[in-house]
Deep mutational scan, measured.
Amino acid sequence: KKEGHWDCSICLVRNEPTVSRCIACQNTKS
């Protein structure tokens, strides 16, 4: 897992550190 990346708590997609919403389901970063 790269530094700063985060996994969506709903759909588990891994997102870039620069985005505050999931690219797949638009869930906000927790």
Rank of each mutant, 00 (worst) to 15 (best):
N15C: 01
W6Y: 01
E16P: 07
R14A: 12
A24E: 09
V13N: 15
W6L: 06
R21N: 15
P17N: 14
C25I: 01
S20D: 14
V19Q: 12
V19I: 08
N15D: 02
I10W: 07
V13K: 10
I23L: 10
Q26S: 10
E16L: 04
N15T: 03
V19C: 01
C25S: 01
R21M: 10
K2S: 13
R21S: 12
T28Q: 09
C25Y: 00
K29Q: 13
S20I: 09
R21L: 04
C22G: 05
I23H: 12
T18W: 05
T18L: 08
E16M: 01
S30P: 11
E16N: 09
R21F: 09
L12A: 15
C25K: 01
P17A: 02
V19N: 08
N27W: 03
S20H: 13
P17C: 05
D7F: 07
C25T: 00
S20E: 10
T28I: 11
I23N: 13
W6G: 09
R14T: 12
K1C: 15
T28A: 14
V19L: 07
I23Q: 14
R14V: 11
G4L: 15
N27M: 13
P17D: 08
E3I: 09
V13I: 12
C22I: 00
S20T: 11
V13R: 04
C22F: 01
Q26F: 08
R14C: 10
S30F: 06
C25L: 00
R21E: 07
Q26H: 07
T18F: 07
E16Q: 02
S30Y: 06
L12F: 15
R21H: 08
I23M: 13
I23R: 11
T28H: 13
T28K: 03
S30R: 07
V19G: 05
T18N: 14
L12R: 10
I23V: 12
T28E: 13
R14S: 15
E3K: 15
C25P: 02
